[in-house]
Amino acid sequence: MPSVVSLKGVVKRYTRGKQRVQVLHALDLEIQEGEFLALMGPSGSGKTTLLNLIGGIDRADDGDLVVAGERISALKSRELAHWRARHVGFVFQFYNLMPLLTAEQNVELPLLMTNLSRAQRNNNVQAALDLVGLADRASHKPAELSGGQQQRVAIARALVADPDLLVCDEPTGDLDREMAEQILDLLQMVNREQGKTIIMVTHDSKAAARATRQLHLDKGRLIDAETSVAA
């Protein structure tokens, strides 16, 4: 399997006030196409930072990042935005939906920057909402949906542009167990049936158990790796 993500010597530092903090220490990582990777570790270990770098919404201070066949560390801001639109879908803990837009308008957002016609956009949006089981809630606004349903809309938004990679930051962190299981079922289905590569940051070992591989980060370093047999 070819690598979807290839990181070599990736370093990330933050400046907080007068302090300069190194979050990631010369990190090397390979993620194969079709993997469902769970990234675990204590708070402040650098999980979200690593996810942001792979998703192209943050920049490394050093090192080489090749994601979905593109050396993203070399891309300019505008090129990186276009790259994100084509290759990465994002799912966040708190859904991050536009509160005044309907579910279908939220899902359509990544397609607005493409050259697809209105009809094509509508088809893709309907397909994505069908996939997450919310076709009948297309015209509902986020406030009219439950937390689990909002997260499903966020997953539909992440999938609508058919990206290579899904990056999920604590996707079940704001949900009860039952809802969380449903979301994990959905992610697993997307990984198995659509072959999407998924990187999921989580604190939850039960959620991590759904992944095909778990990685542990501590103080900006990968400390171990194991391959699980996901149920």
């Binding site: 505008r78 935005a81 994100r84 991050n96 536009m98 990544p110 542009a161």
Partner: peptide
Amino acid sequence: TPELAILKTVGFSDRS
């Protein structure tokens, strides 16, 4: 601000 950040996340450029 968070909504604009999401727009950028899903592929809207700074100029857009």
